[in-house]
């Protein structure tokens, strides 16, 4: 396997209670940059994303065949600890889901779970995570305020800070801006692009303009199958498969 591949999906097939939703997907996700998954509702893009940090494990009736390799290691191998995987592979969801506690504690939570830190170290790490999520300047004077007092966009960036605090190698975003207004969306997108310069980022979005803005590469899925994977500009200007063309033109039946 070439060095710069972060995830390698090999013949990945997923089903919920026996119903197949992802079919025989093979895909190498490079370590550098942002990769977007696009496709109509029910195409399997979110299911695949959730396989990248075993988030589907907790879904009743979920089953999987094929392999998901992270840096060459089988994520679903017997010796893998899902909690550790989720530290390496952070995730941010469509709806921000801050814990019902203070801003500070939200970010500190994962740090306390995974690392033994002094109070000073903890404060420093929290600050760094909030800075990385472009939220520090807005919350530095009210770190003890409840997270729920933040705006929707701020809450989403808080969730990003919380995920970044434990120093993941990969960040997964599942429709991270679909509930946000254009300004808050812009901030999240900027953050996604910025993170993509430093780590592997995979984003699921139904918003084609968003994929074209933030992603270096884009994968198009349809009915659980990978149809096309290419550099974003190439895929959006000159798709090679008729299904992709039809989807981009809004002509998909």
């Amino acid at each position: 396997m070439s060095e710069n591949v972060r995830f390698s999906l090999q013949n990945l097939t997923c089903a919920y209670s026996g119903q197949v939703v992802v079919r025989d997907v093979s895909l190498d996700i490079p370590a550098a940059g942002v990769t977007a998954f696009i496709g109509p509702s029910g195409c399997g893009k979110s299911t695949i994303l959730r396989c990248l940090n075993r988030m589907n494990d907790v879904v009743p009736g979920f089953s999987l065949s094929g392999r998901v390799l992270l840096d060459g290691e089988d994520l679903y191998g017997d010796s893998q600890d899902p909690v550790l995987i989720r530290r390496r592979v952070g995730m941010v969801f469509q709806r921000s889901n801050p814990f019902p506690t203070s801003i500070f504690n939200n970010v500190a939570y994962g740090l306390k779970l995974h690392f033994k830190l002094t109070r000073a170290q903890l404060e420093l790490e929290v600050e760094q995570a909030l800075r990385a999520a472009a939220l520090w300047d807005e919350v530095k004077d009210r770190l003890q305020a409840p997270a729920t007092s933040l705006s929707g966009g701020q809450q989403q960036r808080l969730c990003i800070a919380r995920a970044l605090a434990v120093k993941p190698e990969v960040m997964l975003f599942d429709e991270p801006a679909s509930a946000l207004d254009p300004v808050a969306t812009g901030k999240v997108e900027e953050l996604v692009m910025d993170l993509g310069r430093r780590m592997t980022v995979v984003i699921v979005t139904h918003n084609l303009a968003q994929a074209s803005r933030v992603a270096d590469r884009t994968a198009f899925f349809l009915r659980g199958e990978l149809i096309e994977f290419n550099r974003t500009v190439a895929l959006f200007t000159n798709p090679q498969r008729p299904e992709t063309e039809a989807y981009l033109l809004g002509r998909l039946a």
């Binding site: 303009a209 959006f236 200007t237 000159n238 798709p239 063309e245 033109l249």
Partner: peptide
């Protein structure tokens, strides 16, 4: 319209 693919071309 934010055209894409062959529309954009």
């Amino acid at each position: 319209e934010r055209p894409l693919a062959s529309d954009l071309r």
